[in-house]
Design a protein around this nucleic acid. Sequence first.
DNA 1: CTAATAATTTAGGTTCGCCTAAATCCGCGA
DNA 2: TCGCGGATTTAGGCGAACCTAAATTATTAG
Lengths: 231, 231
Amino acid sequence: MPARRNPAASSESVDNYLKAILALSGPEERRVASTSLAARLGVAPASVTNMLQKLGAAPSPLVEYERHHGVLLSPAGRRRALEVLRHHRLIETFLYELLDYPIEEVHAEAERLEHFISERFEERIAAKLGHPKFDPHGHCIPAMDGKMPKQKSVSLTDVEHEGAFVVDSVSDWDAPLLKRLKARGIAPGVRLRTRRRTPDDDYAVSLGNSSRILHLSPDAAGAIRLCSVHH
Amino acid sequence: MPARRNPAASSESVDNYLKAILALSGPEERRVASTSLAARLGVAPASVTNMLQKLGAAPSPLVEYERHHGVLLSPAGRRRALEVLRHHRLIETFLYELLDYPIEEVHAEAERLEHFISERFEERIAAKLGHPKFDPHGHCIPAMDGKMPKQKSVSLTDVEHEGAFVVDSVSDWDAPLLKRLKARGIAPGVRLRTRRRTPDDDYAVSLGNSSRILHLSPDAAGAIRLCSVHH
DNA sequence: CTAATAATTTAGGTTCGCCTAAATCCGCGA
DNA sequence: TCGCGGATTTAGGCGAACCTAAATTATTAG
Ligand SMILES: [Mn+2]
Ligand SMILES: [Mn+2]
Ligand SMILES: [Mn+2]
Ligand SMILES: [Mn+2]
């Protein structure tokens, strides 16, 4: 009798659920609905329910789950999610900086490898990279203790007035889109000016000191987060 | 009805079976018995039979399997096994050369990662390393086309006469043993002299120009392969 | 040539992560 | 307050990759 080991200790799937909950619950740590998890993970809603029940019922649960009321990460779950996120972003940085990957390819590779590297690997690439604080998309890399500064950036889609900004980060979700942004010169750290717009306008911005105006699709704009420039 | 996809296309498990068959069938490509596969993979013999039946029955089989008569890799299976072996040894070299892993730790990490890296990753680390031909244990890294020069080394356990050799390779199988060998100065490329011995003697060798004699256990000797020095 | 021993396969069962179809629940608009 | 539609859960199943115990087959010593 193999003394039934702790179910759901961790696995690629579990890790991905935890990371998705972390992302979807946002800085305010809202409860996350199964449907949104299902959409994000590309699985059926029933599969989500199943997994959440299992995770929530384990001896030391990784999530706090209540029927019909969504989930939250438990402290242990949050710790694990941040660890995987740290792996993800360190790997991305490593691929970009040391292996010269094109930026739009780092995400997919990191998405797999994040689950399989050892603590030693994590530590070694972090050291090699000089303990970076940001990944190539401009996202913050959680520290080893799970601490991560709150982000105070806004989505370009939420800016309606004219203003001067710096690109904080770009979404890594959609590789082709990311490639297009790169081709247009939009990358973290780039200075960017917005113009006043009404809901019907497209997103018109100019970069650096150039006066050339770029017109961005809503998709593209949605992938860009900005910081104001009053340093 | 989701149009039943090619079963056993490839997976971590399948890869490990193929690699094990490649290793156990040796340069002469002997048929491999389920028992030896079971022992090497650390699974029950019944599990091996199961897997071999599945692999052998697939539309384009990765192995040629005959009840009660062991398996052989098919050309496709051999190709895949060599690809995974190439991954393994490139990753080991990468961890050793670029991430400063201690030699006894590279194997375990490579054993996992070999299944999850992309072609791009493979190509990039190979380039970064200058397309190495040997891994840190002295094992040959298969080329991209799967070609690999025949090894013409002998196990230290098969040497009974006095002679001058160069250490060709050390086994990566047993990390503690590997660490001990390292501590004793035994590594690929090191010059090593054997003395005449009878089956009851231990393995007595001296390294480089030193006259100091090392006495090796059968385990240690079994982990060392030698080349003669007539260059 | 036979019989026992060793190797191998078959039978039956588990866990994980997923799916579809069929309930069920819940909040909101009339 | 009622009931409807969307969100969610339940029920029933599947394939991978394992396992143990019980056949079965091969080999080999006498
Ligand atoms: Mn992932
Ligand atoms: Mn990123
Ligand atoms: Mn492996
Ligand atoms: Mn090796």
